[in-house]
Amino acid sequence: MTVLILARDLDADADNMITALHERGMAVYRVNTAWFPARLRLSASLRGGRWSGQLCIPAHTVELEEIHAVWYRSPEAYRMPAELSPVERHHCLREAKYGLGGVLASLPVLWVNHPSRLADAAYKPVQLVRAHEYGLSVPETVITNEPESVRFFAAAGRTITKLLGANTISEEGCRKLSWTRMLGPDNLDDLRGFDVTSHLVQRWVPKSFEVRVVVIDDHLTAVKIKAGSPDSSIDWRSDYAALTYELIEPPGHVAHGIRALMRSFGLMYGALDFIVSPDGEWVFLEVNAGGQYGWLEAATGVPLTGYLADVLTKGKQ
């Protein structure tokens, strides 16, 4: 019985999970896919319908057949030798993906979360439809590359925009990031560049406060996030120093919808964001299947690492 953690080298939550699993008497191995091929060797044979063999990493050998749970935390992309030509390198990356990646993805064990389920859940438009299907309120939303469509939508009420994918880019030698923005005349008058790709605009939902719900298997931890500054009232990520946290119990129908949504995506772990309106309505914004939880654990004292360690220890039932 072994837990496999796929994570980067510098990851405090992964470090803490190693400790938590050791405290539970579990054998645990941590692998960063970036070690392949220089420091990670794979030897797998198909026997009886499943892959058996070893992952050899510095200081450890992982027996594939002994793995009963995988925490897919945040492993890095493979790193190929510098001597390869671009075509050769691309070939190696693709073969590694289908070879090592395929062997791991085939393991019939508990995944938190399986990478294919993560990929499925990454699309906000899918999340919104699915959330509505399971009884959760969702904001009016438009996704378009037509400037007239966004002007028409914005004319009907306060409107925000946010990115559909990652909110960071690497450019001009530095990292840049973007938060949710309130639309006004200044940015609606100049929509140059709107037509070059999809953009998401959404009706502003009046807020009493926001909530992040961390789901670990069937366990829900809902944390009320109260904004204390103008910036954080639009996007709480923009001003962490102004936030206060408090545990809160979600209404029964919301909890039911969250669990149904998670089951439909095949996710064992997720961090879901909600707005709670002044009249108490919970409005779903998104689910982050790889969302962080460490800072909420520190702020609330809820033992999220322990909950996750228990799930990994138990494995597939």
Binding site: T33, R79, K97, G101, L118, D120, I169, S170, E171, R175
Partner: peptide
């Protein structure tokens, strides 16, 4: 192709490789 395991969706929660220099595009 550089995603280690996921299906061919190109949307996949990979961590940014540590030490990767930032892009210098203008």
């Amino acid at each position: 192709a550089e995603d280690p395991i996921a299906s061919d969706s190109a949307q996949f929660p990979l961590a940014r490789p540590m030490g990767t220099p930032d892009n210098t595009d203008i």
